[in-house]
Design a protein around this nucleic acid. Structure first.
Lengths: 194, 194
DNA sequence: TGTACATCAGTGAACGCGCGTTCACTGATGTAC
DNA sequence: TGTACATCAGTGAACGCGCGTTCACTGATGTAC
């Protein structure tokens, strides 16, 4: 079974994508090498041809997850004004949809509490992702605004915090009310008039 | 070894306290029955005289952790005005100290992302703790204020979110600047003039 | 009063399972001669 | 042109370890007689 030049990279990418979903669904400790390989259509033994160990997979998965988010938000906000982009971001982030699907959601909302316990490679991938997300928000805040950096951090904390908190609330209606109210408050803080 | 009437309860309490620390330090999946029992000065076999299974321990640990927080904040805000209590709360919560010590910190900041994946008993203990924390903030917000409930939820999300986020930042100085800025923003949102 | 017995928190060996990791092997195909 | 060999992604059995859980046992003391 000799393969094409890109074959191995394609396989690796399939594995990383499966892991990116799994790590958000189950956390870094919940990711299973054998399960991820099976999702990519392979057996577990082949794993070590692609990664030195599980930690490297998790780090790649975190990077991929942030990358997916970034591309997604890049796509939907493309061509919008800054204020529109901000509003769109909040309307997609602080939602029942995001609450219900951590496996394809933002790693910051889904992994915030457990990532700091991970080893350096994973933490570094995570920190880069967080910084990039904050940077995107900074870029969307009005030019003249003071302390945009700290406001962006604060807003990201609130958005990720409210999504994580809403997942702790069993009652769907109550959770949705929380999210709706938070959406309004966040936009208000961004200087967006409803 | 016949024991006093309260002996078993005292032992259980020691185990729960050790677990409350461990669950915040390592997460629900990181808690080890044998390790917690050893911290309480016992061997692992005796565990099942106190709890039906590990999940029950984790649920009790979450409850204990929220209880410790509640008692702590109750003590330090006792006798203060509402505005003073709020300010004190923020000054204790959004701090490098809290960032550095998840094992004795707020479960919401330390477990937000992984708790929703736990079984019903654990999730219920967690949700009760979150609701109680939000309730405490509501009680401290000015009486006449509109939508106090949703503001409290939003503030709690931001506070827990920024502490969790700060733990992802490797650089201590940068993390401290984030926390200091967030402290100011949060107090401002609470209507507290600096 | 003294003795046999019941009680029960705690002990520690053992079991089963899942999981990360290792490793000898497979087998299709490109390449050297 | 045909053949032997090298390559290498992927396979699947096996290993070791940690962990939750079970269970027969211990031994100090209160209680029944």
């Amino acid at each position: 079974m000799r393969y094409s030049d890109t074959h191995k990279q394609e396989t690796r990418q399939k594995v990383v994508k499966a892991a990116a979903r799994s790590v958000r669904a189950k956390g870094p400790e919940g990711v299973s090498v054998a399960e991820v390989m099976a999702e990519a259509g392979l057996t577990h033994g082949g794993f070590y041809a692609h990664f030195p160990n599980k930690e490297a997979l998790v780090a790649a998965a975190i990077e991929e997850a942030f990358g997916q988010s970034a591309r997604h938000f890049g796509r939907v906000t493309d061509g919008l004004s800054k204020a529109e982009a901000l509003a769109t971001f909040v309307d997609l982030y602080v939602t029942p949809e995001h609450r219900a699907h951590p496996e394809r959601g933002c790693p910051l909302a889904g992994l915030s509490s457990e990532l700091p316990r991970q080893g350096p490679p994973v933490r570094e991938a995570y920190e880069r992702g967080v910084q990039r997300l904050v940077g995107r928000i900074v870029g969307w805040l009005p030019d003249g605004m003071a302390d945009r950096e700290s406001l962006a951090v604060s807003l990201v904390a609130e958005m990720a915090g409210i999504v994580a908190l809403s997942r702790a609330i069993a009652d769907d209606d109550e959770a949705e009310r929380m999210l709706a109210a938070a959406r309004g408050r966040i936009k208000h803080r961004m200087g967006i008039v409803q």
